[in-house]
Structure formats: structure tokens, C-alpha cells
């Protein structure tokens, strides 16, 4: 579904990604782990198309389409979704308005008819129910006054409503206590399926106890330096990332 080939990217002219290769198949969940500064968040922003992240080499293909040539909103319409590490607060805009505007933008982008207020309400209520969330969250301004856990759950709700084919979860576990982590992970797991692939980016192994990946990759110094199955995550938890940093230095 997603193919990253020899991806190089710079931020403020500083090379961060130095040749990332990654292939993620339909319905697969891959995890990227790595030390701080390895380029994990850069990879997620490059995939989402954030300004200031310049791709200097390589390509990203999503269902055969050239992702890097698309605007952020076109990527979203194509079915890419980034769950933010730090979801942005939008005062004055309710979650309901935000979700409806987003969904109808995506539908327009795909040439599908827009949903009216009633149709949308029905859909969103089904999703909150599925995720065990309260409808009260819909009336609040986007992420304003939300706890860390609520912000991450709100990302999962957006994922559920927008129904993307490919999700990047950037440090979804950061700032969460174990209860909040479990709730968020349950939400993500509820959205797993054969039609949806995920890339879970995390520093710690504990998230992967709840969202169990098919493959685990280690990103260090801007490259994937090792890949394995879910056992690799546990090994990293025991040994830490020192080995990869040492490899680089050697």
C-alpha cells in the first residue's frame, strides 16, 4: 500500500532522513522505533506534507500515486492520515464543525456527494459509540481544554470518521498514563482491518503491547537500521538504543 524509497529529507538545510526504505502492505501494521532525534517525527511530517520539511531525494508511493507531489489536503483525500503527536487546539471551532468540514472536503475531493447535517450526525454518533466516547466531545472546541488522553482519543475519532486507508500514528503514546494508553490503543485496534494499514511511530515498546505490529523497524540516524517482528520491540526495551548509536559512531 505504501512504499518509501531512499527517502532523504532536510529541515532548515540539516539532513534528517538519509535514505529510508520501507514497504507496508495492505492491512499491515508496522512500528517504527528509535531514539530521540532519529528522524521519527520528520518521517511523519514528510508523509503528511508539512511545510519546512524538504525532500531532497527518493520517493513515496501510495497505491502507486506519487505522494510527495501532492498538497497535504490531497494526501488526506487520497486516504493518508497523520495522528499528530501534539494535536493542535482550534478555539472557536467545534469538533462537530471540524469533522463535518473535513469529511465533506474529502468526499468532494473523491467526487462523492457531501453529507448533510443529519446524515453526518448519524455517522459521527455511530463512530463515537463504536469507540466508547461521549457525544459531549463533539460540542467542544477542537482540542481546547482537552487532557492529553482526550486529545489522542480525538485523533482516533477523526481517524474513525475520515476512514483513511493508511494511518501514521506519531508518538501516540506520549503524555499518556497507562489507562489512557489502553483506551487509545483499543480505539486504534477497533479500526484495524484488511483495508487499512498503519505505521506506528513510538519511542517506547509499551504501546506495542496494546497495538501489536506485524513488523518492527528501528530508525536511527535517519535510516532504518534493523527490521524484525514484534519480538524486536521487546529486545529494544531490554537493551535500549545504545547499540545503534554506537554503530553509527563506529
Amino acid at each position: 500500500m505504501l512504499e518509501i524509497r531512499n527517502l532523504h529529507a532536510t529541515v532548515d538545510d540539516k539532513p534528517i532522513l538519509k535514505g529510508v526504505d520501507l514497504v507496508i502492505g495492505d492491512g499491515e501494521v508496522h512500528a517504527i522505533m528509535g531514539p530521540n532525534g532519529a528522524g521519527k517525527s520528520t518521517l511523519s511530517y514528510v508523509l503528511a506534507g508539512r511545510e519546512g520539511y524538504e525532500v531532497t531525494e527518493g520517493e513515496v508511493l501510495f497505491r502507486g500515486q506519487d505522494v510527495l507531489a501532492m498538497e497535504p489536503e490531497e494526501r488526506a483525500a487520497a486516504g493518508l492520515f497523520l495522528a499528530f503527536q501534539y494535536p493542535v487546539e482550534i478555539p472557536g471551532v467545534t469538533n462537530m464543525t471540524f469533522l463535518k468540514t473535513a469529511l465533506n472536503s474529502l468526499r468532494r475531493g473523491r467526487g462523492e456527494p457531501e453529507l448533510d447535517a443529519m446524515q453526518f450526525l448519524k455517522l459521527v454518533k455511530a463512530k463515537t459509540k463504536q469507540l466508547g466516547m461521549s457525544d459531549e466531545m463533539l460540542k467542544r472546541f477542537v482540542n481546547v481544554g482537552f487532557s492529553g488522553g482526550e486529545k489522542k482519543r480525538n485523533e482516533v475519532l477523526q481517524m474513525a470518521v475520515l476512514d483513511p486507508a493508511f494511518c501514521v500514528l506519531d508518538e501516540t503514546d506520549s503524555g499518556l498514563d497507562i489507562d489512557a494508553l489502553r483506551i487509545v490503543a483499543d480505539g486504534v485496534n477497533a479500526l484495524r482491518g484488511p483495508g487499512r494499514s498503519m505505521l506506528v511511530i513510538t519511542h517506547y515498546q509499551r504501546l506495542l503491547d496494546y497495538i501489536v505490529p506485524d513488523r518492527v523497524h528501528v530508525l536511527a540516524q535517519g535510516r532504518i537500521v534493523r527490521s524484525g517482528d514484534k519480538e524486536l520491540a521487546q529486545e529494544l526495551e531490554r537493551k535500549g538504543y545504545a547499540e545503534f548509536a554506537a554503530d553509527e559512531a563506529a
Binding site: 508539512r50 497535504p72 489536503e73 483525500a77 497523520l82 478555539p91 471551532v93 473535513a102
Partner: peptide, 24 residues
């Protein structure tokens, strides 16, 4: 960027943010 990453184009994102600003 957050709004664009959810599929809302720049003009619509600006409009939504202006509305939100006034709604406060």
C-alpha cells in the same frame, strides 16, 4: 496545517479559523 492534513484546503481552512476566531 492541521486542518489541511484532514483534507480541508487552505482557503477553507482559513475561513474556518476566521470563523472560530470570531466565535470565541
Amino acid at each position: 496545517f492541521y486542518l489541511r492534513a484532514r483534507g480541508i484546503d487552505r482557503a477553507a481552512a482559513r475561513s474556518l479559523l476566521i470563523a472560530g476566531f470570531l466565535m470565541q
